[in-house]
């Protein structure tokens, strides 16, 4: 009985807007481009033969599969659904990703504590719109809890500043 409730058990807050023809075409173009690029790189490796394959053969086959499926998606642009339009929120996604890259690059240099507090602060305050107080409490609290759990309890060799 449960599965009959799938769609109407609770109202979807606001269904994401479908992506339309352009995004559907992008969905087909990406595999084609990716496959073509990989095929070009594979061809620069030794292909060998089917009975004695070189390093390039299998990547080439997979690239061909990608190009074919991509072409298939392009051919049915009108029918294939499931894409979603990008919204202004995508800027937040890009910012978050940049933040995570910075996090990863600082991690081994200055240990995990400061980057973790900074990352949590940025996400909580600017992406999550928490108050400054709860942001401060949470980011320090979570970092301390992670320290206790990973470093003190599980002894995971994470780079860290504070030696206890």
């Amino acid at each position: 009985m449960a599965e009959h409730e799938t769609d109407d058990a609770r109202p979807e807050p606001e269904a994401p807007a479908p992506g339309g023809r352009v995004l559907a075409a992008v969905a087909g173009a990406v595999p084609v481009v990716l496959g073509a690029a990989a095929a070009w790189l594979s061809l620069r490796l030794d292909i060998g033969t089917l009975t004695d394959p070189g390093p390039g053969l299998w990547p080439l086959i997979v690239s061909a599969l990608l190009v074919l499926t991509g072409a298939g998606i392009l051919a049915s642009v009108r029918r294939v659904e499931g894409t979603e339009a990008f919204t202004r929120g995508a800027i937040g996604v890009a910012a978050a990703a940049v933040g995570l890259f910075v996090y990863a690059s600082l991690f081994e240099v200055i240990g995990f504590e400061i980057p973790s507090v900074l990352l949590l602060t940025a996400w909580l305050r600017f992406l999550g719109r928490e108050s400054w107080l709860s942001t401060a409490l949470l980011s320090v609290g979570v970092t301390a809890a992670a320290y206790a759990l990973f470093i003190l309890t599980l002894r995971v060799p994470l780079p860290h500043l504070i030696a206890l």
Partner: peptide, 18 residues
């Protein structure tokens, strides 16, 4: 979600590092 997401991401990152 505004609180759960950053906590999840930090723990995931630490896990990936390990």
């Amino acid at each position: 979600p505004g609180i759960l997401a950053p906590i999840t991401i930090v723990i995931t990152m630490l896990g990936v590092y390990s």
